[in-house]
Simulated assay, not measured.
Amino acid sequence: MPTDRVDLPEFRRLTWRDVDPATRPHIGSAELTKLVRSLPPAAEVPPAGTDWRLADLWWDRMTEALVERLGEWVVGWQHTVVMEDYPGRGVIPIWWSVELPITTPDETLDRLAEAVMAWHELTVELATDARGRFAAAAPPTTDGTGDPVAWRAVKAPGISRSDPGRFTSTIPYPRNLSWADVDPRGRDFDPATVAAAVAELVTAGNIPAQEADWRLRDLWLESVSIGFAERYGLWAVGWRWSVGEGDLDGGPVGHWCCFSHSVTTPEATAAAVGAALIEWRDWLEDIAERFDRFLPLAVDDLDGWERAVAHLVTAVGDRTQYDSGWYGCCTTVLGWFLEAAGIAPGRREELLDHAIGGRFASWVEPDRKTVASVAELLAGQVAGA
């Protein structure tokens, strides 16, 4: 799979002049199918089950080849329009992403040709609104462009939908780990083994170039996390939870930021990755030690709960520097504390929502009164007061 970036015209920026079927030669289904099969990327259809990032990149390469042959209008094959009763807006046109599965090469290419033809036919319909689906949803006034009423109708809502189910990861986001997943006690870890583990995962031959497509960079980062998880356990995937606006935003790790800033030479990159893993482990051990200062706690020990919560909020804030998204890490650590204290899973999220409820914000260190209020609320909820 080539590592070069694929730059496609932005669908949302297309004008009627870009998609008007009257401005392009007619193409029939058989001719379009033949064209799709002749494009260079058509010889490299990924196998079924390919990671969604590699599959997406291949679809983009096919679209890029289609744009070169047919024009910018063709990027619209990835979209269709349906009429939906949208809350507060009535029945309006909504753009939906077209999701095509990768199966056999023949089926995959045929489906792509069908999707391109469906988009062409939709533009033909938009030229006249022959089926009367869209005109009623058009803005009440014209915009002076002379665009068809149906086109103005489908562009006006600016609402689109897609199926997030395909954007899956084989590893969890650190915020979704439980304390049982990350508790360092009983999990042996020798920092001296990290350099060797990293050397197997981070090599000059497998690091994508800085200019590589973001999906290839993301896949590489995930492969490192998978390697760590297989070697050390699931807890290790938190090595990328960086301070501020890094890869995962709002975490406690300072040795890693993100691909664009932390990936340099292979040697320096390997050193940064290894240091980040060790730092993450040190943070978990620090948290465990802090938990031990307060636990066990009786549910009616309001003073004890208040001291523990205030202490943990401050500890997380100091570590994350109260930077972008720091409150996410704070909520996670408090959730871990509730878990370690034996609070039932079903209650934890409710307790945290009630206690924090928007009181923390990015780049803002809460004053002592706010921290005390959160601690008091959470303690009171735990005690059932």
Rank of each mutant, 00 (worst) to 15 (best):
E267S: 08
Y232V: 00
F228C: 05
P266L: 05
A275K: 02
D292M: 03
C257W: 06
A209D: 11
R240F: 02
F259M: 05
L248Q: 13
E230V: 04
I207V: 15
W280C: 07
A196T: 12
D218N: 11
D218R: 14
W283V: 03
I278P: 01
D286A: 08
E200A: 14
S225K: 08
A272R: 15
D190Q: 11
D292V: 04
R281C: 07
W235H: 07
V316M: 04
A272D: 03
A272F: 03
H311S: 15
A288L: 05
Y232K: 03
L312A: 05
E200D: 15
E285Q: 14
V237G: 14
F228P: 07
W241I: 01
D303I: 15
G317V: 11
D188L: 09
A212H: 06
C257V: 12
T269E: 05
V299H: 09
A236W: 00
D303F: 10
D218M: 12
E289P: 05
V316E: 01
G246R: 13
T314H: 06
E267A: 14
L277D: 09
E222A: 10
G254L: 04
H311C: 10
D318N: 12
F294G: 02
E267P: 00
D286Q: 08
E245R: 13
F189N: 05
V316Y: 01
R187S: 11
D247F: 00
A272C: 04
G274N: 02
L216Q: 13
L312M: 13
V299F: 00
V273D: 01
L312T: 12
L295E: 04
S260D: 15
G250V: 01
A236F: 02
S262Y: 02
R217G: 09
E289F: 11
L219R: 15
D282L: 13
W220G: 09
T314Y: 00
A195P: 08
S260Y: 13
V224F: 04
A197R: 10
D249N: 12
V198H: 06
V194H: 06
G244A: 15
R293L: 14
D286I: 00
L248Y: 06
E200L: 12
V316H: 02
A229F: 09
V202G: 02
D300K: 09
R215V: 06
V237F: 03
E306Q: 14
G233K: 02
F291K: 03
A310L: 05
C257M: 05
D301G: 08
G238H: 12
L216H: 10
G250T: 04
V224M: 07
L295K: 03
P266M: 09
W235C: 07
G250H: 04
A310D: 13
Y232E: 08
G244Q: 10
H261A: 09
D188T: 13
G233T: 04
W235F: 07
V273N: 10
V299Q: 06
G304C: 08
F259E: 07
W280V: 03
R290W: 12
C257N: 07
A196I: 12
C258W: 00
I207G: 03
A229W: 11
G227K: 05
V299E: 07
A271T: 14
L297P: 15
D218F: 11
P252A: 03
A236V: 00
L216D: 08
